[in-house]
Nucleic acid binder design. Structure first.
Lengths: 325, 325
DNA sequence: GCCGGATCGGACAACGTTGTCAACGTGGCG
DNA sequence: CGCCACGTTGACAACGTTGTCCGATCCGGC
């Protein structure tokens, strides 16, 4: 800026004013400064700017589990879109489900003085963020609740969705339902399982833990689990898979064996209607989840100091056929 | 830092040294400083730090078309991973294929003094980046070549892959091949089309432009295009779809009509083997594409001043059945 | 006992920008 | 005619950190 000022024959401050579109500068000087800016290829240093002015780095942080996962990619896309509307850039990092890494990344983002944080929690305890929050960095959690920290949270109605889906299975006459899940350690999975339990309970059916398979990490394991359950003396007549990777594997195996079991999956996906098996899914709007969270965050950044709120977004049952028992 | 120094009873500079793990500080003082840091919840201001020390914001920018798209999400994931290994954070932005937006976002990233840029080009001209590059911000382009700027570039062998795939169709006896593509305006699409033309040419077959459908944006349009082509008096006996969204639509329509046409798709995808239709694809390693580009970038950031290079990564033909003519 | 060198702490300036405030000129109003 | 208000401009300090340099301290050796 010093060089620009020298070339334009004005003071440093005037250059600053022109660069920031401040009022009360003679058009002629504006012209001279802009010419000098163009000639020298000057670009304002955003770091110095936000250092001096105290706040507003026009950057927010997004912490997710894994960028490449379509669910989180959708979240990132929606968050980026909202951020764009607020002239803000997005720093994205993956926690890889590691609480220590999550903590380190969040601290790093705070050190970069982001204006706010959007977090899909990996760990159980987020009290280490309290200092930052009190210092003025708003945080909004999404998809899962935070631990040990009162903050805005946007969740999906996992329990209600699972309940509604399993109710439909029950209505179709199914009583023995195989449940496949990734990891009981994840909050969303527990909620979905609880929803299934609710539905069975309200039908007066005992909840057979022998039909639940935990630790089903990928389609291949899902196929194996389905196979094992079908080989039981009294096999399930329906399956409930708690995420779409698992659904994929289950579809493959049920199709391969020519089974007529009903299949209910949590998470819709692009090709669900194309799959070679009748598949009913519990769908939700991932973009809406992220959009809501991001808008909440920007309201906080904008100065909203109201009491933290928790928003629960509905799920929708998409029926593509449920074979009766 | 002033407060920390006061509480620990040392000078500002000593705090700085401790925070930066500089040598030659008494262990006892280190202890006192760390205690004060913990007590006050001090966190170093990364902005001020990189402002003062001149370079190294430990941040790189990634510009892609659209975060939510699985292809770009995979790129982002791989880039984030490499960045993580270098203790660097990632700013991600979507150009939405708009050259003006691309330009503005890249400028914005430069204003934030990123250490380097990873760019999937949207526009045709990137000469506006020359000043930044000369000023010391390395740029690596990936997936598509840059325009008007000599820089490192990592590409896929689109033409070779398409040629190999279409050659297999030709070997299976197909001569009339319907080609479905998104937009001829995109470099990768042109390359793939050229590859198909190469293959047909080397079989001595005329290239029938009447069988090429441009502007196929989504699965529904793909289905319609397939349907129209099949209704021709002399319909194609094989289809080549130039990206996986299109492949998806084509699969659906071919399956629905019980067609026996061969289908070759560019881009592999998770469920390709599950699809209710024999589908051969030209696959490539998206992660490798991004990893290569990111590593090239960090080599530049590390001081590599060698001549810009272009890397072309191979594709692989994954055969899952090609019905003969 | 003195000196040289090794080791460590502190004062100061600087990174590039912007907020504050004062100075200047001009025109309107009492 | 004098004063004030306002539009316009510039000098200066400050944001939080780190590089530079110098002074202080301590130790061993002559």
């Amino acid at each position: 800026m010093v060089d620009v000022a020298a070339l334009a024959g004005v003071s440093l401050k005037t250059v600053s004013r022109v660069v920031n579109n401040a009022p009360h500068v003679q058009p002629e000087l504006v012209e001279r400064v802009l010419t000098a800016v163009a000639e020298l290829g000057f670009r304002r240093n955003h770091l110095a700017s936000s250092l001096r002015s105290g706040q507003a780095t026009a950057t927010i942080g997004l912490l997710i589990e894994e960028i490449a996962n379509p669910f989180y990619a959708t979240i990132a896309g929606a968050a980026a879109e909202v951020a764009g509307h607020h002239g803000t850039m997005l720093i994205i990092a993956s926690s890889e489900e590691d609480p220590a890494r999550e903590r380190q990344l969040l601290r790093d983002m705070c050190a970069r003085r982001v204006d706010g944080l959007l977090v899909v929690p990996a760990g159980e305890d987020h009290s280490f963020l309290r200092a930052e929050v009190e210092l003025g960095t708003p945080v909004v959690f999404l998809d899962r609740p935070a631990g040990g920290l009162l903050a805005d949270t946007v969740l999906l109605d996992n329990r209600g969705g699972a309940r509604a889906g399993v109710c439909r299975l029950v209505e179709a006459g199914h009583r023995r339902i195989g449940v496949l899940l990734d990891s009981i350690g994840v909050h969303t999975m527990r909620e979905r399982l609880d929803g299934a339990r609710d539905a069975l309970a309200s039908a007066g059916t005992p909840y057979d833990t022998g039909l639940v398979r935990d630790g089903v990490r990928d389609p291949a394991e899902a196929a194996r689990a389905v196979s094992e359950l079908l080989d039981l003396p009294d096999p399930p007549t329906a399956f409930f898979s708690l995420n779409n990777r698992i659904t994929l594997g289950a579809v493959g195996e049920l199709h391969r064996r020519g089974s007529d079991a009903a299949l209910l999956g949590f998470d819709d996906f692009d090709m669900a209607s194309l799959v070679p098996y009748p598949l009913t899914v519990i769908a939700y709007d991932t973009r809406e989840l992220a959009r809501t969270a991001a808008e909440l965050l920007f309201r906080r950044i904008g100065g909203d100091r109201s009491w933290p709120r928790t928003v629960v977004l509905p799920t929708e049952l998409v029926e593509r056929g449920i074979p009766p028992r």
